[in-house]
């Protein structure tokens, strides 16, 4: 059984914009799944359809074999959702936020108080629990929202851009908590993000969306490998030599006047071996630089077409501006 199964999902907005265009994918039990893509790729629309907050135009969605379009209430009982905007209620205290949403989630009354206090403690919010949330920092608000997940214990937790607008240390902290939710409670977690570092850090598998379709879906490691590995670039004492390297060290992809480029799966391990190889053959290595592949590169590859279309928006704007000038 899969946690979430999406089949042929489409969402049309009138007149004929296909925000999501016939996508099919599934999310495994207990994994952290990332939905990536440029702005307007259809991530949020997909997430809304799965969380029953927006009706799809066609297609089916199942959560734990339950059709969520037929029984949205049953589905919502299994889901936790943390929207992109910070959604804790600023006019209530931290404790009250957890209490009310636990009630709306029908958390068992005998368990409720204990879970709320534990969650507050776990998230380091105990001493501020009686303060109004509007006096919290951004990171504390996010932590409060994750505390909500600890109280409600949904089977699947959806986070829409969980670390947007947070400072680097709060961001790290939120990542740690997300990982813990996944590891300690076996919670299936689905996140959307633009932040490739976040996706790489957290996700077991990611799907990159582009103009309403899923461009690619795989583990971060295999995705990086699929577009070629890390690039090691060496400068040697004498240039213009005819070089060769054994296959297990990597692939020689460039050898011009002063730089030798080698593509390899894992630069850290390969570099000492490559240097040894050259020195054994009598060449002196002067310097080494490494260009490690990141998910950014993967993202750029699969999201490219829509980045190009952003150019047309700019063109439109300049055309419009020139029209406005002429009108004056």
């Amino acid at each position: 059984m899969k946690a979430i199964e999406v089949n042929n999902l489409s969402k049309l907005y009138p007149p004929n914009i296909r925000a999501v265009d016939d996508i099919t994918f599934s999310i495994d039990l207990g994994e952290i799944f990332g939905l990536l893509g440029p702005n307007g790729a259809g991530k949020t629309t997909t997430l809304k359809a799965i969380t029953t907050l927006g009706k799809p135009s066609s297609g089916t969605i199942k959560a734990f074999d339950i059709d969520i379009i037929e029984s949205p209430q049953k589905a919502r009982q299994m889901f936790g959702y943390v929207p992109q905007a910070v959604s804790a209620d600023g006019d209530l205290t931290g404790y009250e936020n957890l209490l009310i949403f636990a009630k709306l989630f029908y958390v068992n009354k005998n368990e409720r108080e204990k879970r709320i206090n534990n969650a507050l403690k776990y998230m380091g919010l105990s001493d501020r629990s009686q303060d109004l949330v509007k006096h919290y920092s951004g990171g504390m608000m996010r932590r409060l929202e994750i505390a909500q997940a600890l109280v409600n214990r949904p089977k699947v937790l959806f986070l829409d851009e969980p670390s947007i607008g947070l400072d680097p240390s709060s961001k790290r902290q939120v990542w740690e908590y997300i990982k813990k939710l996944n590891e300690e409670f076996g919670m299936t977690i689905v996140i959307t993000t633009h932040d490739m570092l976040e996706a790489d850090e957290l996700c077991h598998r990611i799907a990159i969306m582009n103009s309403g379709k899923i461009a690619v879906i795989d583990t971060p490691h295999l995705l990086k490998k699929s577009i070629g590995g890390d690039i090691v670039s060496l400068s040697l004492q004498e240039s213009g030599l005819k070089l060769s390297i054994p296959d297990e060290l990597g692939l020689l992809i460039g050898n011009d006047d002063d730089r030798v480029l080698i593509s390899t799966d894992n630069a850290e391990i390969a570099i000492p071996q490559i240097i040894r190889h050259f020195e054994n053959n009598g060449s002196v290595v002067r310097s080494v630089t490494v260009n490690k592949l990141t998910l950014d590169d993967v993202f750029m590859k699969y999201a490219r077409s829509s980045l190009q279309s952003q150019g047309t928006i700019k063109d439109n704007r300049s055309v419009r501006r020139s029209f406005a000038r002429r009108g004056r």
Partner: peptide, 15 residues
Amino acid sequence: RDVGLLTKLLSTPSP
């Protein structure tokens, strides 16, 4: 709705 609170209310199992 603007601050995201409504989304959270409507994502609860409460009718």
